[in-house]
Design a binder for these strands. Structure first.
Lengths: 136, 136
DNA sequence: CTTGACTCCGTACTTAGGTACGGGGTTTAC
DNA sequence: GTAAACCCCGTACCTAAGTACGGAGTCAAG
């Protein structure tokens, strides 16, 4: 059970050291045990958690949403139905994101593959393909 | 060819009116023609563009990246190879996002479906499943 | 046993992406 | 033909998410 210092876990997690303190304050990382001298002692899983947070941000989730995602697994001692409901909502959200991304990808693929004839500057299908008033 | 006012296009695009001006400054919307009195005249496509921008943000793209995506279709008069290269890069990025989201979804699905026995609080697979040091 | 690297903390600053304000002109509906 | 509802612009303000600062304590190597 190797313990990591703040600097080390930040390095492994790919974030700034101050970000660790910030996440602790935000409640995204629970307060770690301390040494005699008051130094934080992190488990290696914390680095993993940091990478997850980072990646989730790149996917458009806010820190609050990420906190939600993390509590879905960290405290499954709540009412089961509640967790279920929230998880289902996240799944739907994620499916929507995947769909939109897939549509974007298709458009870009077409752009690359056969845009020789699409060289004029109006009415390329990129915008239309992702539209449809579907709000999320 | 109905022209839209700033307020109307903002409404249709689902954004604040001030955001229109902001995007114009940022170069995400090109400067529209004006009336005698100096009022902006937008085409309906602008609303579509706004919805695209909004959605792309929710998918974790920065405004700069979104600008990139939009120029990929708005000015295909650049060197073809350049567009191709940038489009390929975006496609790879998007594929990565889709993969990560799909993994997240799977985990949540499992959580919902069979987490009865996963009720203890350590070592749920959610973090591990998305990990692997793969940075983007 | 000291020097350099690391940690602590509170607080202040920064960046991205908007949003609001307010004084002025314009357009539309009575 | 005037009041309400819009629009203009420059500028100031705001929120989320960090990031930096700096004075003080700590740890590890020589």
């Amino acid at each position: 059970m190797e313990k990591l210092t703040t600097g080390r876990v930040a390095q492994l997690g790919g974030v700034n050291l101050e970000t660790i303190r910030y996440y602790e304050r935000r409640g995204l990382l629970q307060k770690p045990p301390r040494t005699e001298a008051g130094y934080r002692q992190f488990s290696p899983e914390t680095a993993q958690r940091l990478r997850f947070i980072k990646r989730a941000k790149e996917l458009g989730f806010s820190l609050d949403e990420i906190g939600e995602l993390l509590t879905l697994r960290v405290q499954p001692k709540q009412k089961r139905g509640d967790v279920r409901t929230r998880a289902e909502a996240k799944i739907a959200d994620i499916e929507n994101k995947i769909e939109t991304l897939a549509a974007m990808k298709t458009v870009l693929r077409n752009l690359v593959d056969q845009c020789e004839h699409c060289a004029s500057d109006d009415e390329c299908p990129i915008l239309a393909s992702l539209d449809g008033e579907r709000s999320l």
